[in-house]
Amino acid sequence: MKKIKDRSAIPFHIIKSVLLILLSVLCVLPFIVIISGSLTSNMTILKEGFSLFPRNTTLEAYRTIFRSPEGIIQAYRMNFYYTFMGTAFGLLVITLTAYVISRKDFKYRNHVAFLIYFTTIFGGGMIPWFLMYANVLGLRGSTLAIWFPALMSPFLVILMRTFITGSVPDAVVESATLDGAGHWIIFWRIVLPVLGPGLATVGLFQALGYWNDWYRSSMFSTSSETWSLQFYLYDMVNSTMAMRQMAQNVSINTADLPTQSVKLAMAVVATGPVLLFYPFVQRYFVSGITIGAVKG
């Protein structure tokens, strides 16, 4: 590690520290509010609003969420399954595609890039999309319908292409080609090994997208067995609210749920695993500049 000798850099480091500390605090404060809120009794939240420290500490929100443990365990299981399938397959096909459209010797690369980008601009809307999966492919109720539709996103393909062009110099590929290496070899032996930060970033985004998804579970599930975690939690709150709304029209008994604190506890329950897992990915893209030649 190199010592900082540059005196002129001192103001930079002071400003840097101040800004980072400020932003970090700003970003973390609400999260602390959420955690303490999830431990506060619902009544207290309703009466006094949120605060930084839990008051009238209680686990009622967590108890409500874990009221039926087998339900939430199943939801966790499904969430891991969707996240794994989506990220593994997604990362593979995204990288393959990005590699192709990054190749300058591929005649149709701009056509393909255009066709991919075009889908972000024009779309037929939700209903035809739903009919495609539910009626034409008959995937209603299947787990495939929950992870397949988000396998690739144009944004991640284009991001990956940027990473590839940025980290694999043309000269390297050219010399490999002269040595007789085909695309297969180049992709696996030359491109993938240096793509660490790119793969980590795209994989992270992909995994987060899957982890946080509730919409596809909502649309395609026909049984709570296939619900993702977010939908499981989301539906718990939604059904209480909806039943209360509904009771305006129909004589029904409304369920009781401490909605405010449960909402906050939900955020904790859903985010927890990600924050635990995050540091493992993180090392791929936070190895810094001043740290010198040692690369993670």
């Binding site: 939700m126 509730w214 909502s218 649309m219 599930s221 939908f231 989301y234 539906d235 939604n238 059904s239 609210m241 909806a242 039943m243």
Partner: peptide, 8 residues
């Protein structure tokens, strides 16, 4: 389910 029920 009670999520987006009108739409669904």
């Amino acid at each position: 389910t009670w999520t987006d029920f009108t739409q669904k």
